[in-house]
Write a protein that binds this DNA or RNA. Structure first.
Lengths: 211, 211
DNA sequence: TGCATATTTGCAATAGCTGCAAGTTTGCAT
DNA sequence: ATGCAAACTTGCAGCTATTGCAAATATGCA
């Protein structure tokens, strides 16, 4: 799937990564507002105009890595181990999504997280991504729980993602350790599952992917 | 509290309302992008520069009414009827918040809702407001449920608001009638309450406001 | 009536973002 | 190897949101 598509594609990918990397470096060094598109373009050795053919806005460049991870999560959402109970799939997905969103793994540590927590504009963008992912989860729920009602699917995904999101933000704000964060997520998930467990559809056997 | 503070204050309030009203009218007539700050200022009979002393950004003017309503909700959150069980307070707050956010009551019908659903930037702003309100709820939970843990409070408010938000957006997108929307919210709230009911702190008697 | 303060305004500048047309580079077929 | 068509980059011009600053006005009160 995500292979080497050809020299052209590879070069574009490299450029994209360079732009993102240089942008993050500059953001970390001088700050977000203090870095202009022109600065980023210069550092990445492209014209300012070219920046916008790789990222639709300055804000989006902050989410370059995160978006890649979210795309992976979306793929994994579709490949559920046979026979896995719906609630287990949800739990697994939640953990995946949240890891994707707050992982400090990337080349530039947690610059993104810092920025997102500080700048309201970026925080809003992050929320947007959260709800987008939430909608994908919602669609998968129909496959997971045969006959689940539209509203139950919507509510369930909103509840799960909303609960996780709140906990994540709280933990990051208060500097929880990774372990404490995991514990917090776990207890939140317990509450979520208690609620979702009251929906009959979650106890039906999941539909096995046809084929 | 929100009385007539004097001529000066009243005039400012009137100007603020005029700007917002003219802006919404123009947005409805020509569209959001097609309306410039200069247009709005001209229609409201102030200088473009003055616009920014009433609203920090063009996007914020869309939320003028909504923000007023959310402020009222925040006040009502604090004035809970004595003896009301925690879960009842939550249910009541949820309904209040969602009404504030999606009410079509205002002078300009549902222009705002339309815009918010269409423009990603505005949607993000709306989400931001949702989470801000969520944090207020979270703080009140400590008063409502003595000894509730930090994480349980955070998770509970995130779950409640997240669930409601998802349902609201879904309903508006699919053109549900007010009745259908109310039913949907109700069934979502049931799931939420089932989850929150598993937290012991929600069954303690609430703290009566001292005094 | 006049002053101290708050508000409005004009001016100028910055920066994000977009459309357009010209210049380059790349992939592929011959 | 060669040449063409498609894809990519770039420079330019322009529009708009947003902000700082200082002058000009308006307002509330003594």
């Amino acid at each position: 799937m995500g292979h080497v598509e050809g020299l052209r594609e590879r070069k574009k990918l490299r450029t994209r990564r360079t732009i993102a990397a240089e942008a993050l470096r500059l953001f970390a060094e001088r700050g977000y507002e203090e870095t202009t598109i022109a600065d980023i373009a210069a550092a990445a050795d492209v014209s300012p105009r070219t920046f916008f053919s790789y990222f639709p806005s300055k804000e989006d460049v902050v989410f370059a890595e995160i978006d890649d991870r979210l795309a992976e999560v979306a793929e994994r959402l579709a490949t559920r181990p046979p026979g896995e109970p719906p609630l287990a799939t949800i739990r697994r997905s939640m953990v995946d999504i949240m890891e994707a969103l707050v992982s400090e793994a990337g080349q530039y540590g947690s610059v993104q997280i810092q920025l997102i927590l500080e700048r309201p504009g970026l925080r809003a963008r992050a929320l947007q991504r959260m709800t987008d992912t939430q909608q994908e989860l919602e669609e998968h729920l129909h496959g997971l729980c045969p006959g689940i009602s539209e509203i139950d699917a919507v509510a369930a995904s909103g509840i799960a993602v909303g609960g996780m999101q709140a906990v994540i933000v709280h933990c990051r704000r208060h500097g929880y350790s990774p372990e404490a964060m995991r514990d917090a997520l776990d207890s939140a998930l317990t509450i979520v599952e208690r609620g979702l467990g009251s929906v009959a559809a979650f106890h039906q056997a999941p539909v096995e992917s046809a084929g």
